[in-house]
């Protein structure tokens, strides 16, 4: 078994299995917790209105803009580039379709209820490059800003690395980086994605699953207490 076969076969199966098991573990462990009974009189009984915090916190607040603009811009640049590259690059869509076939024996339309088009490689390359640049910028910012450096730990740097690696290896494989065989680059790309999947449930990357639920819960709590959102 060569490296690419290993990456496409057992490594992929195990990493996805660890990813699924880990994510379920984390999510169920949180969502099945008992809420502490709040005995106070609600100031606003329609607590569900606090769910708007999900949208509000996704956009910069004017009064904090000066301090948060860099992070907001880089965050959006990275996430948009990363997600579009992930979901609209033709080989990735083929991969997802194969995952759907492997998991439930159907195509993507059967799994999520719809299909979607792919984007030209030039657009994907541009967005991936923007993502890489944004990731490098936030790393430099983290390293030169004394406060951020102080509060950063292994999770921050390793999560950054496992996110950065698939982007770089993917671009290298796509570009057929000079002198490197494509199958080796593709294997590195798959292995880097598998590292991301294995680390995902156990580090800060788990925010992808918890961020909106956390904002919603916080918003409802604030709303009930009558706090300004």
């Amino acid at each position: 078994m060569d490296l690419l076969e290993f990456a496409r076969g057992p490594a992929l199966q195990w990493s996805i299995s660890i990813f699924i098991a880990g994510v379920l573990w984390r999510l169920l462990g949180v969502f099945l917790l008992r809420s502490k009974k709040d005995l106070s009189e609600p100031r606003n009984p329609a607590a569900w209105k606090g769910l708007r915090l999900i949208a509000l916190r996704s956009w910069p607040r004017r009064e904090f803009l000066e301090g948060t603009a860099f992070g907001e811009v880089m965050g959006y640049a990275f996430h948009v580039g990363f997600l579009v590259s992930l979901f609209f690059f033709a080989p990735h869509v083929l991969f997802f379709a194969d995952v759907a076939r492997g998991l439930i024996g159907t195509d993507l339309r059967g799994l999520v209820g719809f299909g979607w088009p792919t984007l030209p490689n030039g657009i994907i390359t541009l967005l991936s490059a923007i993502s890489v640049a944004a990731l490098l910028a936030v790393l430099v910012h983290r390293l030169v800003n004394p406060v951020k450096r102080l509060i950063s730990n292994f999770d921050d740097y390793f999560s950054w690395f496992v996110t950065f690696a698939p982007l770089v290896t993917g671009m290298a494989a796509f570009a057929h980086l000079a002198g490197w065989p494509y199958e080796r680059l593709l294997a590195y790309h798959l292995l880097s994605v598998e590292l991301l999947l294995v680390w995902f449930p156990f580090g800060k990357l788990m925010h992808a699953f918890t961020i909106f639920a956390a904002r919603g819960a916080t918003g409802m709590l604030f709303e009930r207490k009558g706090a300004s959102l």
Binding site: E5, R8, G9, L12, Q13, P91, H92, L94, F95, A97, D98, V99, R101, G102, L186
Partner: peptide
Amino acid sequence: QPLSTGRW
């Protein structure tokens, strides 16, 4: 089977 797919 496309190259980008896995071995399930």
